[in-house]
Design a protein around this nucleic acid. Sequence first.
DNA 1: AAGATTGATTCTTTCGAAAATCCTTCTAGC
DNA 2: GCTAGAAGGATTTTCGAAAGAATCAATCTT
Lengths: 244, 244
Amino acid sequence: MPPRRLTATAVENDRTGSETLTLVDTAYRDLRRDIIGGVFAPGQPLRLEVLRARYGLSFSPLREALNRLQSERLVQSAPLRGFSVAPFSAAQMWDAVETRVLVECEALRRAIAAGDDAWEARIVAAFHALNLKTKRLATRTTPPTAEEAQEIETSHYEFHRALIDVCGSPRLLDLADKLYAETERYRQPTLTGRTPKGTPRDVALEHREIMDATLAREEARAIELLAAHYRRTATLVEASLDAK
Amino acid sequence: MPPRRLTATAVENDRTGSETLTLVDTAYRDLRRDIIGGVFAPGQPLRLEVLRARYGLSFSPLREALNRLQSERLVQSAPLRGFSVAPFSAAQMWDAVETRVLVECEALRRAIAAGDDAWEARIVAAFHALNLKTKRLATRTTPPTAEEAQEIETSHYEFHRALIDVCGSPRLLDLADKLYAETERYRQPTLTGRTPKGTPRDVALEHREIMDATLAREEARAIELLAAHYRRTATLVEASLDAK
DNA sequence: AAGATTGATTCTTTCGAAAATCCTTCTAGC
DNA sequence: GCTAGAAGGATTTTCGAAAGAATCAATCTT
């Protein structure tokens, strides 16, 4: 039997049907998910042989995917020494967070100036979807499955994205996505651990206030709240980083 | 005679001696230079076979280099349809310019707050180096060679980089570099063409004013001048884009 | 004549192996 | 005992070819 080569369409079009994905794309997507999800520890070398076995791909698509991830600062590389997961450091996290604040606040400013009815509707919808999922999990006693965690994750992303989606700048949105991934990687470890004592936090309330200020077109207030939201998260992450 | 394979060190260490560059690195550097320099026209497909012949490399390093350039928006790619030089459009240029203004103004703000004596010295030195080179060329009648143009280019970059180098944020500096490359590509065609009539411009004076405000730590004024500097360039580029 | 189908060609994408380099360990010399 | 150097193994990087997909043109059908 001739060995069937894994091809772009053979792998992906089964499910999507619409978009053609190359193996580079799938490698990129999977690697990104696993790095953000903490499957590979920060600083850990990413041996090509290991990745090859894990994802069932050849070197070429893996290397290309790693190159893309490098430009997002999720992986590092030294010439002739291969790739490794970007290490954790408080300084790097703060740089990512502050850059994110700069980018997303500017994007929010423009979105507030340009947003229409559909924009408002999408924000409200995303907010409710996120809240529903969060509450549904909070009332249960069993810990969330990986899939459920991923869903919350996505809803969280959708909400923040809905705020700025109409800002009109492809570059700002692209940057926001990359910085989201970077900071999310730092947030991940704190999700499983307990919250630091003495700092109760109502994330849902923070989201509501951001949404209210945005829909009321109170630009200055919305920006201030959004920045505070991200910095508060960063402070908590930093505390849990130090605790280790 | 066994064919000697082109290796990283064999190619580059002859000159640099210090750093090891892989073929991917050289491919990236050369392609980037040629795309910015306008060797390949905007929108032009980048056939791998052509690149292979031009740079004397195999597919793998070329593809990886193109992947990196894609994340800088210098090249585009569609699945199974290969790579092409990012096309020109006024909207894209303005997005790049406005993002650059956002990033560099923030970086300049921080640099002014953090800059020390060495920072000031480097700015002054870069300013003089740029001015010397520009004046030397202006007094001549013969048009500048490609090498001289490249030197001016580099000096120009050095000056703007010197302003913000101490801002303390790797991400902002990285973004500034990428956006510089992107906008430089648009500026390139206007260099050879004549300047639009009726708009005499003293770039050297603009640079001096930016430098003076920066060294005087007049944050608001420095930022305003820098932003105006970039937007003025963009306006001229736009005019020459429309002219075609 | 317009549209669909087939076939040839061009190009991208993927693979696996070979070459080059790095890293560890072992040996020899002092 | 300790350092320098060399051999061996592990890993990355590069190559060339093979496979798959898109494009273009010609033919056939309606």
